[in-house]
Amino acid sequence: MEFLIDSVEKTLEIGKKLGELAKPGDIICLTGDLGTGKTHISKGFAKGLGIDDHITSPTFNIVNEYHSGRLTLYHFDVYRVNDPDEIYAIGFDEYIFSNGVSLIEWANYIEELIPNEYLHIHIKKVPELGENFRKIVLTAYGSKYDYIKELKTC
């Protein structure tokens, strides 16, 4: 499923709708170049879960936990991870196999650690259409994520 969007607000809205549809144990993997909008998707996702905390990318912590929504959100940023063992050291399996939702920015850096079933969101700039245009591609790996079909109304 693909979306062509032209604003931060629309990026946030897609994230919010995904957060509203999310289920316990979901794993959401975000990929894309720097500045494409991964953190905006994350902010919208948190809103969709009912989390009003200020969402920032956990670049130096690896993971931020948010417990104030209808589901706990584990927000990972693995951009600075040099070795997958660093992720295991923080208890990665305990997070992703919990009843919370794991949202992983730069998931391509730890592909070998991601379970077979997850939702992949890839964001790409589309400069030929304008500075703010992004193509957001959602790919569900596993029937658990069939709920993305409900996003056609975006």
Rank of each mutant, 00 (worst) to 15 (best):
52 D>G: 04
118 Y>N: 07
142 G>L: 12
133 F>T: 02
60 F>G: 10
146 D>P: 02
117 E>D: 15
122 H>C: 12
107 A>V: 01
25 G>K: 08
34 L>C: 11
12 L>K: 14
145 Y>N: 00
26 D>P: 00
74 Y>E: 01
96 I>P: 02
99 N>L: 09
23 K>D: 01
99 N>Q: 11
76 F>L: 10
94 E>P: 01
84 P>L: 08
44 G>L: 09
40 H>G: 05
43 K>T: 03
112 E>S: 14
17 K>T: 01
134 R>D: 06
100 G>E: 04
64 N>D: 14
142 G>H: 10
107 A>C: 07
7 S>H: 06
118 Y>I: 03
14 I>F: 03
66 Y>R: 06
135 K>A: 12
67 H>D: 14
129 L>Q: 12
46 A>I: 00
103 L>V: 06
77 D>E: 09
37 G>P: 06
31 T>F: 08
149 K>D: 13
2 E>Q: 15
67 H>S: 13
65 E>Q: 13
34 L>F: 10
104 I>E: 07
67 H>V: 04
7 S>A: 11
24 P>A: 01
25 G>C: 07
57 S>I: 04
7 S>W: 04
102 S>M: 01
26 D>T: 07
57 S>Y: 10
89 A>L: 14
82 N>C: 06
73 L>Y: 02
32 G>D: 11
147 Y>M: 12
137 V>D: 11
53 D>N: 09
114 I>S: 10
107 A>Q: 07
99 N>Y: 00
60 F>S: 09
87 I>C: 08
66 Y>V: 05
60 F>M: 11
25 G>E: 05
107 A>N: 04
138 L>Y: 08
87 I>K: 09
154 C>E: 15
59 T>N: 03
150 E>H: 13
4 L>D: 07
148 I>Y: 11
56 T>A: 11
52 D>H: 12
147 Y>E: 02
46 A>K: 04
113 L>T: 02
49 L>I: 05
94 E>N: 15
130 G>L: 13
93 D>I: 02
55 I>N: 05
66 Y>H: 03
148 I>W: 09
131 E>R: 14
145 Y>I: 01
5 I>Q: 11
46 A>P: 02
67 H>R: 15
82 N>I: 07
131 E>A: 14
10 K>Q: 14
146 D>I: 00
15 G>F: 09
91 G>S: 09
44 G>H: 04
112 E>H: 10
148 I>L: 10
91 G>C: 08
82 N>Q: 14
152 K>A: 12
65 E>N: 09
25 G>L: 08
